[in-house]
């Protein structure tokens, strides 16, 4: 009941999400996603979804398993470890901001009540840099991917557990904005994320099999052969937006952070297995 009241309050604030049949809770959303994918890929065990398209495409999987024998993301992990161990100019380092060590990916994204926004790992890392007088890193490629690769590797085996706290209605509003983004048609092609990754998941677009949304957030940063390097989740969002001929949004801007909040919540219960490798 309290949940419901919260939701009504949020709807009143957000004003953009319609009421009635659309008023579903995050848990209901997640169950509906799970149900759809379980039905669509009935032979695929739940824990396999962390492998994206390779969970549902046996041929692609063979190539991928060969690639994983000599993981192309390894040098980035090593570089990231050096970054983690190297003090900033002021003598402090990432270690001082994250005293629990580098295995922290499972804590993100989370609702940051103080700042009133969704906090992601790359953003937290940059806030640490800036608090210590260092320049923030760019968010899509470059050395941000090293430090995120290192933390991702150290966090392997943690379980996705995004929480939407009850004590701040803005958290649920952020989740709902992310959900709205996911279902909103954009660009000249008039596609939403759900058109490809929910409705048509398993189908082919050119040479690629459309992966399920479930598990899409567990393995970042990801080495992509097409990129020839490692990129962040928000770089991938950018690519998917461009593919439908929509203007992408700013990496780590509010839209993509809220989207990440929603998307990661959908993968609650799945293991982290970053960094990843993809075609």
């Amino acid at each position: 009941m309290k949940k419901l009241l919260n939701r009504v309050a949020v709807l009143a604030i957000a004003g953009t999400v319609s009421m009635g049949a659309q008023a579903t809770t995050p848990e209901e959303d997640r169950n509906a996603f799970n149900k759809l994918y379980k039905w669509r890929f009935s032979g695929v065990p739940m824990e396999e979804f962390v492998n994206g398209a390779y969970a549902i495409d046996p041929i692609g999987r063979e190539n991928w398993e060969a690639i994983e024998e000599f993981p192309p993301y390894e040098p980035f992990i090593d570089e990231g470890e050096v970054m983690w161990e190297t003090p900033f100019a002021n003598g402090k380092g990432y270690k001082d901001c994250f005293p629990d060590g580098p295995a922290i990916a499972g804590n993100y994204p989370h609702w940051d009540k103080e700042q009133g926004m969704v906090m992601t790992l790359p953003l937290a890392l940059n806030q640490c840099r800036e608090a210590n007088g260092e320049k923030p890193l760019k968010y899509k490629k470059g050395s941000i991917t090293n430090i995120v690769a290192y933390t991702a590797f150290q966090s392997r085996g943690q379980v996705t557990n995004v929480v939407i706290p009850d004590d701040d209605p803005r958290a649920l509003a952020a989740y709902e904005n992310g959900r709205k983004f996911y279902f909103t048609r954009r660009g000249q092609l008039n596609f939403s994320c759900s058109t490809c990754h929910l409705q048509n998941t398993g189908m082919k677009v050119r040479t690629e099999i459309l992966s399920p949304t479930l598990g899409q957030t567990t393995h970042w940063p990801t080495y992509r052969s097409k990129w020839g390097t490692v990129g962040t989740l928000h770089r991938r969002f950018t690519g998917c937006n461009k593919n439908i001929r929509a203007k992408p949004f700013k990496a780590q801007g509010e839209q993509y952070r809220n989207l990440e909040y929603f998307l990661t919540y959908m993968s609650n219960g799945l293991e982290l297995n970053g960094p990843g490798a993809r075609k």
Partner: peptide, 17 residues
């Protein structure tokens, strides 16, 4: 026009609750 037409969230019918 597209943005305005999408202002309301419409959960797709293929997503069963």
């Amino acid at each position: 026009q597209q943005g305005v037409s999408q202002q309301e969230l419409h959960l797709p019918s293929y997503l069963k609750y």
